[in-house]
């Protein structure tokens, strides 16, 4: 996984609540067999009309937000489907950080699997960040988001922070617990023998 340390870039405001993963990447793009290439379909139904033309009003179709690397949004961001295509689409578009008052659980986890930083800040703070004219800087090590005239600290679980800063391979990390996994399986075969499956 790509590490996340600091990021300076344009922050696009999409200040609505409950942005769901169907909105982030509609179902017709889920038949892909790869992780890449979804950026052009990010927010497809908001960004493009039924004929595929750009909707001029939509934030990501306006300058300077076409080159946004940060997204500012409302509470419960990423609710709905578990599709990891949502952070893949954000990442492929170039967005590596989403700032929102709260996130839905599965999306939140999926961000960390892909080196995308979800930052939790109050709605009033996000409104102030959205009012900033220039780029924002997100610094994970100091846990701050700042603009030219303001700076805010955010909270993040220490384990999540360390994993992102290092770009840690989570599977490799769990493989380090192999002896415990084996011991668990041995114990469970005795304690819960009914769990053995024969397949179908």
């Amino acid at each position: 996984m790509m590490p996340f340390t600091t990021l300076t870039g344009i922050a696009a405001p999409l200040l609505r609540a409950n942005v769901d993963t169907d909105l982030i990447i509609p179902k017709q793009f889920l038949t892909t067999l790869v992780r890449s290439g979804l950026g052009r379909h990010l927010f497809d139904e908001l960004r493009h009309d039924p004929e595929g033309r750009e909707v001029p009003d939509f934030v990501l179709n306006r300058e300077p937000y076409r080159n946004a690397t940060i997204l500012l949004s409302g509470p419960n961001f990423g609710c709905g489907s578990s599709r990891e295509h949502a952070p893949w689409a954000l990442l492929d578009f170039g967005i590596r950080c989403v700032v929102a008052p709260s996130f839905a659980d599965i999306f939140f986890n999926n961000c960390f699997s892909n080196g995308v930083l979800p930052v939790v800040l109050p709605a009033e703070t996000i409104a102030r960040l959205a009012a900033e004219a220039g780029p924002l800087t997100v610094d994970l090590s100091t846990q701050t988001v700042s603009g030219s005239g303001c700076g805010f600290r955010f909270e993040i679980e220490a384990a999540r922070k360390a994993a992102l800063l290092e770009g840690m391979d989570e599977i490799k990390r769990s493989e380090a617990n192999l002896s415990e996994i084996e011991a668990y399986e041995t114990r469970r075969r005795v304690e819960a023998p009914w769990l053995a499956v024969g397949g179908c």
Binding site: S82, E84, P87, I106, N109, I171, S174
Partner: peptide, 10 residues
């Protein structure tokens, strides 16, 4: 519970 594809791999 539902999981993402990276977790499926995990």
């Amino acid at each position: 519970f539902g999981i993402g594809t990276s977790e499926v791999e995990h």
